[in-house]
């Protein structure tokens, strides 16, 4: 092999190995500097690699879980302006038990103040995951589920969005760049009136971006597939049949048909596309549905299911 080519491959590996195994930041810089030190790349090339590696300053990466928590609370409050909460203690208590049973096995079991779940009084088939773990599910979505396992699949998908910080990714880069400047200047002290007004404006902008994506624009197909993949892992680890995600999607597809109405139909890829993407990853371990799970689901969601 051409020695220069070999060096180039080794350099590429030097960039990749630590990132793959340690998830460390700053590795492009280290790799570029190694390349510059041994003279296989010049200063301009090294600078270009460093710039490229450091350019991704997204809200999802920069925001602390504490800041994410406050954004998430505002996102949920804003969703409540359009969707009324369903004030049913038993159904919400059950939803939270089911949700927490999944959270503890998710890829991100701990957020700043934890996950909480709530039903929304809407016929629309929809569910929302506010950053930090406030998860909202409509009556219409519960009606798409025939078993606890299928409702678990819905929640596991939403937990997947929180785990992957998809909500924060909806914050526009330009918005975050200006918000980050205000945050940096603010230096952690109690803000004065003027700074607080600036900060609150930046906050509202970020919250607006997330709400717009959750309720109107939808996540990217890639993000939806990635939340499905996370859901399969969570379901598997928690002991639920992964195939529940497929049966839930089938029911949802049937219910929505080709309708272009509000809710999931508009903000999510078609159910069939999601089924095709997720099916190869599902390992059938013969987890049968269970009478106790079925009974408690039917009991807790009685009034919602009866109105179907």
């Amino acid at each position: 092999m051409n020695p220069k080519r070999l060096i180039a491959i080794l350099l590429a590996l030097s960039l990749l190995i630590p990132v793959l195994f340690c998830g460390c930041e700053g590795m492009p810089e280290a790799g570029a500097n190694i390349g510059r030190a041994v003279g296989v790349i010049d200063d301009d090339e090294a600078e270009s690699i460093i710039r490229g590696g450091n350019a991704i300053q997204k809200a999802a990466q920069d925001m602390t879980p504490e800041q994410e928590h406050y954004v998430g609370r505002a996102v949920a409050a804003k969703v409540f302006q359009s969707y009324k909460p369903l004030d049913q203690a038993e159904a919400n208590a059950y939803l939270n038990l089911l949700g927490q049973s999944l959270v503890v096995f998710s890829g991100r079991p701990e957020t700043f103040r934890g996950y909480h779940f709530l039903l929304l009084d809407s016929d629309e088939v929809n569910a929302f995951a506010a950053p930090g773990g406030l998860i909202l599910v409509t009556r219409g979505m519960v009606q798409c589920c025939q078993t606890e396992d299928e409702l678990a699949a819905v929640l596991a998908h939403e937990i997947g969005h929180v785990e992957k910080k998809h909500g924060l990714n909806a914050i526009k880069q330009a918005r975050w760049t200006s918000a980050a400047t205000i945050l940096a200047a603010e230096a952690g002290k109690q803000s004065g009136v003027e700074e607080l007004a600036e900060l609150t404006e930046a906050f509202e902008g970020c919250v607006g971006d997330v709400v717009m994506t959750l309720t109107t624009k939808g996540y990217s197909r890639k993000q939806e597939f990635s939340a499905d993949a996370a859901a399969v892992n969570t379901l598997r680890r928690a002991g639920y049949p992964e195939s529940a995600l497929v049966t839930m999607l089938q029911r949802m597809g049937q219910r929505l048909g080709d309708a272009e109405g509000p809710g999931f139909a508009r903000t999510h890829p078609k159910a069939q596309d999601r089924i095709e993407a997720i099916t190869p990853t599902i390992v059938d371990r013969g987890v049968a549905s269970n009478a106790v799970r079925q009974q408690r689901f039917a009991k807790a969601m009685q009034s919602i299911l009866a109105a179907k």
Partner: peptide
């Protein structure tokens, strides 16, 4: 370094 309580915090929520 991250500063606890910096930026999007209770104070901003209170203003909202």
């Amino acid at each position: 370094v991250a500063m606890a309580g910096k930026g999007f915090n209770q104070q901003v929520e209170d203003k909202m």
